[in-house]
Amino acid sequence: MLSRVANHIYWMARYLERAENTARLIQVNTHLLLDLPKNVTLGWEPIIDMLSFRDNFYERYSQADERSVIKFMVTDSQTPGSIINSLAYARENARIIRDIIPSESWEQINNLHLTLKEDGQSVLTRRHRFECLNRIITGNQSITGLFGGTMNRDDGYAFLRLGRHLERADMTTRIIDVRSASLLPDMSAEHSAFENIQWMGVLKSLTAYQMYRQEMRLRVNRADILEFLMKRAVFPRSLMHSVMQLNKCMAELPNRETVCNEIQSVASQLEELDTRSLKQARLHEVIDDIQAGLMNIHNAIDEAYF
């Protein structure tokens, strides 16, 4: 496989995954806000922080209200990680390698991008938002299924999954980081009833609620949620699962030593983690370390293959 092509497959997968995760995030935040009392100002700012876009946002918007943040995150072509841009980059990468990927998947990526481009305004109203974001989520799920059902299990597929899982792991760390931080500023007693709802929100951002229930069989609580999202490989959006998938992909690729070492170091970090004794400040540090570890994996892949 051409190095350049492997690079495009990898980035196509990353951008698709990023678009889907961002859509999930906004979806859940919208629902969450409906359940919270009016005087709880959870608001939309955490969403911007989650993707480290604060400066970029305030350059162009004065206030982090719902409409601005949604516009910024979904349809604004000047936001580097907006969904429309993620899909445009995914499309551009796919376009360059449309001779490699199954042609239906190119059609679907193209279509997904076009649909949001033409119909993006509908996301601004709560009434149509669910449908619009859901199209992106299910769209990417069906593209993922198409890849899975029609692509040869060769190097290309390995790079596709590398991109997907690395991006997913990265998004998961971001969601855990910002969500848990915004929860903590010790809630007064009258609001603690809503803490559960918010932790459920964390789970739901990752479609993890149902699976959490099945796996952990516990009522919602912080330590178990962190355990589940970070360490339990059984859940396909957990950090451990993504990292183990990375390892599996590598088994098929040549020249893999340095990349595997980097993956192993993140895996060890996760294994050693004791979520019960993890205080908020420490959690933030741990997540920083993991993100740095993911970055190292990316750099090693880039160095070895592209």
Partner: peptide, 17 residues
């Protein structure tokens, strides 16, 4: 170019490849 490469199962390359 992409279409023909795809249909033939050939690599599509640019000069720098």
């Amino acid at each position: 170019h992409a279409y023909l490469a795809q249909q033939m199962g050939a690599e599509l390359v640019v000069g720098s490849d």
